[in-house]
Design a binder for these strands. Sequence first.
DNA 1: TATTGATACTACGACAGACGTAGCAACGTC
DNA 2: GACGTTGCTACGTCTGTCGTAGTATCAATA
Lengths: 114, 114
Amino acid sequence: MTQISSDVIRGYNDTMILYLLLDEPSYGYEISKQIKALSDEKYCIKETTLYSAFTRMEKNGYITSFDGSNPDTGKRRTYYRITDAGRQYYQQKCLEWQVTKEVVEQFIKKEGEL
Amino acid sequence: MTQISSDVIRGYNDTMILYLLLDEPSYGYEISKQIKALSDEKYCIKETTLYSAFTRMEKNGYITSFDGSNPDTGKRRTYYRITDAGRQYYQQKCLEWQVTKEVVEQFIKKEGEL
DNA sequence: TATTGATACTACGACAGACGTAGCAACGTC
DNA sequence: GACGTTGCTACGTCTGTCGTAGTATCAATA
């Protein structure tokens, strides 16, 4: 199974995380699971990468955090919610992706051409 | 005009350069022109990025350099030629790109969906 | 009951690629 | 003779990724 090295995706980790926050707030562990599942196990974001993305995006105003810990059990959990600025950023990255894809493909040979 | 930020392309700069070396040796200035042209002006690789890529790829054995200076005028020019290892690496990156593209697109909404 | 595995996160430091700035040198042209 | 193009090097900074490690709760299992 081809595993994707993250340097390839660099620049789209934030986008992927925001995508998973579009409909409802979520938290680190779940997002990492969802990325793995949605990518068909081809991409597993590293914990440190994920949490540092949260920090960065919160600082940039793309997400806000709130406490979702269980007061009974004492289990910690930090949820993140996408902001309007985050939605805008996400949309912009989606448009950018279309351009990027076209550009990169100018330099890529398909299997038949190799 | 949407200009691509290079963090997006990070991980594919080497691939783009190798693509332009597939058929014949070339040198820095020409490659930078070709990238700009082939990308329809949407991506301009920075000089420092380009030349450090050359150094790195030569160290990795993906390209070799030879002197193409003009002995009459004294004008310097360093050509680079792709190696077999470089071709192999390029092919591998092409396959990887197909996977990467599919993965990223799981997290991207098209214009109609936004 | 002790250990392991899953859940949920933080801290710290290293590394690599991109890039800003600067400089050098030859040439053409205006 | 100043400017733009060609062609390249040196140096240092920044950012995102990631390795390593540590903390804490809970469920299952041996």
